[in-house]
Computed example of a mutant assay.
Amino acid sequence: MDLRYLITAVILAVLIGMVLQPTRQIVSDAEVGARAVAKTACSCVFIARRSLEACRKDDPPGFDMVRAHLDREEKAVKASVFWIIRAEAVYQGATGCAMD
């Protein structure tokens, strides 16, 4: 094997690793954000009996990128980040809201 190909392969592997690690962290953060919005909005709407809009005003900075949708029939709040990362919390009566 030519040494140039080996060096190129090692450099390419390191560059791919440098790109994938931050991407994994971003996806993980987006999942946490979607789950947090779904759970807190569900509790806020179905337990505190506030509107979804009023509940979203209490979100911490950065959570505005998470979209939330209220489903009154299913008693659920569905949240997503860029329509890819999704989470859902469902109101279950006396036990409150739980992640689905």
Rank of each mutant, 00 (worst) to 15 (best):
K75P: 02
L15H: 03
V37E: 03
R49I: 09
M99Q: 08
Q25D: 07
T95D: 13
R4C: 00
P22T: 03
R50E: 12
I26Q: 13
K78G: 01
V14M: 12
A13V: 14
L6T: 14
Q25A: 09
V45E: 07
M65Y: 12
D29N: 15
E73L: 10
T40P: 02
A98H: 08
K57W: 00
L12C: 13
A9Q: 05
A76P: 02
A41G: 00
V37N: 03
P61H: 00
E31L: 10
C55V: 06
D58N: 11
K75V: 05
D58E: 15
A54T: 12
D58R: 04
R49F: 12
G17S: 05
R67N: 13
V45N: 05
K57R: 14
V90A: 08
R86M: 08
W83V: 09
I7W: 08
I16C: 10
M18Y: 08
K39C: 01
A89K: 03
Y5N: 15
S51T: 15
V90N: 00
M1F: 11
V90M: 01
L3H: 11
D64N: 13
D2K: 14
A30G: 03
P61M: 02
G96A: 06
D59R: 04
G17I: 09
T8I: 09
A98V: 11
E31T: 11
P22R: 07
C42L: 07
F46I: 04
E74R: 13
P22F: 04
P22A: 05
A54I: 04
V81A: 05
L52W: 02
S51I: 04
K75H: 12
A87P: 07
R35F: 00
D100S: 15
T8V: 10
V27L: 15
C97W: 00
V27I: 15
Y5T: 14
A36M: 06
E31M: 07
P61T: 01
W83G: 08
D59H: 03
L20N: 01
V10R: 10
T95C: 03
G33S: 11
F46W: 10
L15I: 12
I26Y: 06
V90D: 01
I11D: 05
V90H: 02
A98P: 02
T40S: 12
A79L: 09
S43F: 01
V27W: 09
M65E: 12
G62S: 06
V14D: 04
V10T: 15
G93N: 06
V81R: 02
F63W: 04
